[in-house]
Design a protein around this nucleic acid. Structure first.
Length: 284
DNA sequence: TTGTGTTTTATTGCCTCC
DNA sequence: GGAGGCAATAAAACACAA
């Protein structure tokens, strides 16, 4: 397959026990007189060397009693039992040491992409295979990305909650204003009837009141002009009208076929569901 | 001690770029 | 067409409650 990569595994298993070359290729066996990682010396803090590493390549001090490392580290490296133990157990993946991870983290902070030269240098410094360094960076970038996604999600969630709260408040305010308008129109209606029964009914006024027209502005305005409403009532009505969106009171010439139950097309719904357009409807 | 959930290391397959 | 990046995933290591 194109682009398909095959890497020599550094986690040789029991199944590889009859294939020593594979194992030695991936985990070079040091002789007892040879430093484990000569290239590290002088280029790395001594703590790194003292603490050892838990990677497959450099062998963890914690596991030394059971490790391949010990088999070759000890004088009696001909110990058949230890060798046998090594070759007959599954070699597991090991975690990098705290020091190695800290070093890689610092490097990642400086630059989260890894040029070949830097990869090789890091691998040398840490006593890892360059592929391990590459994998670590790759996984680190993936973690970084998912963290960023989490942050973005939280931020969007907060924005949404804030908008939703605003929306709920507007909805309440709308209901309140609607109620006020209903009360005031009821009052107007009552007064109109009283006047009619007094025989002083004006033609224009009755036309408006008798119709099913939704043009409450006309009714209200007429009444405000010559009403005997209390000052408070007039104030309330004026306020209510000021708070209403313009499209609630259409111009008379727009009368015929317009449905004003929806906001203008350009209004932003902020992505609320269609049901939430209840805010815009003005049904009696 | 053990079951279970999380994190870390490593692999695989696909894609893009040069 | 090879190198390297990424997403998805496997599996080992680890943490921790019961």
């Amino acid at each position: 397959m194109a682009g398909r990569r095959i890497y020599p595994s550094n986690t040789s298993t029991v199944a590889d026990s009859n294939n020593l070359s594979v194992l030695i290729q991936s985990q070079r066996v040091p002789s007892s007189s040879e430093p484990l990682f000569p290239h590290i010396q002088g280029s790395f803090p001594s703590s790194f060397l003292v603490s050892g590493t838990r990677s497959m390549v450099s062998f963890d001090g914690v596991d030394r009693n059971r490790s391949f490392f010990r088999a070759f580290e000890e004088e009696d490296n001909g110990d058949d039992d230890i060798l046998d133990e090594y070759f007959h157990r599954t070699e597991k993946k090991r975690r990098l040491s705290v020091e190695q991870v800290q070093f890689l983290e610092k490097s990642f902070e400086a630059e989260n992409k890894l040029e070949p030269e830097r990869k090789i240098q890091l691998a040398k410094d840490l006593g890892l295979q360059s592929r391990q360094v590459a994998i670590w960076f790759q996984n680190r970038r993936a973690r970084c990305k998912s963290k960023q996604l989490e942050k973005d999600y939280d931020s969007l969630q907060a924005d949404y909650n804030s908008l939703k709260a605003d929306y709920d408040n507007l909805l309440k305010e709308k209901d309140k204003l609607k109620q006020e308008v209903l009360e005031l129109t009821d009052k107007l209606s009552m007064k109109g009837k009283e006047k009619a029964s007094d025989g002083e009914e004006s033609k224009a006024e009755s036309d408006i009141l008798d119709s099913d027209s939704p043009h409450y502005t006309d009714v209200v305005q007429f009444e405000l002009d010559q009403s005997d409403l209390s000052q408070d009532e007039e104030d309330n009505l004026s306020k209510a009208m000021l708070h209403l969106p313009a499209y609630v009171f259409p111009k008379l010439e727009d009368d015929n076929n317009n449905d004003y139950s929806d906001p203008p097309a350009s209004s932003c719904s902020f992505g609320f569901p269609a049901d939430d357009h209840a805010l815009w409807s003005w049904d009696y």
